[in-house]
Computed example of a mutant assay.
Amino acid sequence: MTTLIASTVKIDAPAIGRRSLLRDIGIVMTRELKPVLRDPFSLLFGMIQPLFFLALFGPLLAGSMGGSLGGGVWQWFVPSILVMTTLFGTSTTGANLLFEFQTGAHERMLVTPLSRSSLLIGRALKEMVPLFGQAVIVIAVMIPFGLELHVDGVLVGLALLAVFGIGLGAFSYALAIAVRKQDWMFWMVQQTFLFPLMILSGMLLPLETGPGWMQVASKFNPLSYLVDAERTLFAGDVWSSAVLWGWLAALVTAALGLTVGIRTMLRSAD
């Protein structure tokens, strides 16, 4: 008489779910990166604006208030340009999703077995790859002009920009989904928020000499904490309280952006 003994295999469902989500994020990120890799000129084209700001606005700062900027004008202004590049790059990513709505590409992605969350997270992560490339080029170009390179501060600064950029990109995708039937509203809302955030962050000009109401308003602007943190990091101070406040602002932005973005993406699939 033969006795069959069935062995029981315990499957860790949460672990499988995590691996599946990471795999889906990688698939979406790879898909989104392919057009960028096939057209590297787009990376160089994105450098025009930050290089123009450095070439035209930087000398004005050096001539008007260079002596009052701690650490030199480039240690003060180059981090601002990197934050501005991240701000412009990630806040406009929703336009790509609007194009996919028009062509039907997004609907085709929804019928795949990919998780809905990965469709947003993978897209948001993809946006940081060209931004990292642009940041490296900006830093390399400015070193001969007097920018002091603190490698540890630069690496932490790039990681900080990545966290903030993912959150802002998620907000941009959520906005695109919300206005997909009136896509002109995407640019109206994006522009309405973009420039006040820039000005009230002290990104281009110091706010210390500005009116009191602007200084108060900047305290409620998460971008101002990010700008202060990046300047501190590029000065070589990794453990400053300004850096901690910058991380807090970036993490809160990322958490809120991903929460809003994922919920909006899930609702759009219903």
Rank of each mutant, 00 (worst) to 15 (best):
I5P: 02
A6T: 09
T8M: 01
L22Y: 12
L22R: 10
G26E: 01
I27R: 13
E32L: 02
E32T: 09
V36T: 15
L43D: 02
L43M: 15
P50L: 09
L54G: 04
F57A: 15
L60I: 13
L61I: 06
S64P: 00
S68E: 15
G71S: 00
P79A: 05
I81C: 02
T86N: 15
L87S: 02
L87K: 05
F88W: 12
G89Q: 06
G89H: 05
G89K: 02
T90N: 13
T93A: 14
A95F: 08
L98A: 07
H106W: 15
H106P: 12
E107C: 03
R108I: 04
M109K: 04
L110W: 03
P113V: 01
L120E: 05
K126T: 14
V129G: 13
Q134E: 14
A135V: 05
V136I: 13
I143L: 14
L149Q: 00
L149G: 00
L149C: 02
V151D: 03
G153I: 04
A159E: 00
A162H: 00
I166D: 06
G167Q: 10
G169S: 14
F171T: 00
A176G: 09
K181E: 08
K181P: 00
M185R: 06
Q190T: 15
Q191Y: 10
F193L: 15
I199F: 15
I199A: 15
I199S: 07
L204D: 03
L205H: 11
G212R: 01
V216I: 09
A217M: 14
A217T: 11
A217H: 12
F220T: 02
P222L: 07
P222N: 02
L223M: 15
E230W: 06
R231Y: 10
T232Q: 11
F234K: 05
D237Y: 05
D237V: 13
V238Q: 09
W239Q: 11
S241G: 01
A242D: 14
G246W: 08
L256E: 02
V260Y: 02
G261P: 03
R267T: 08
R267S: 11
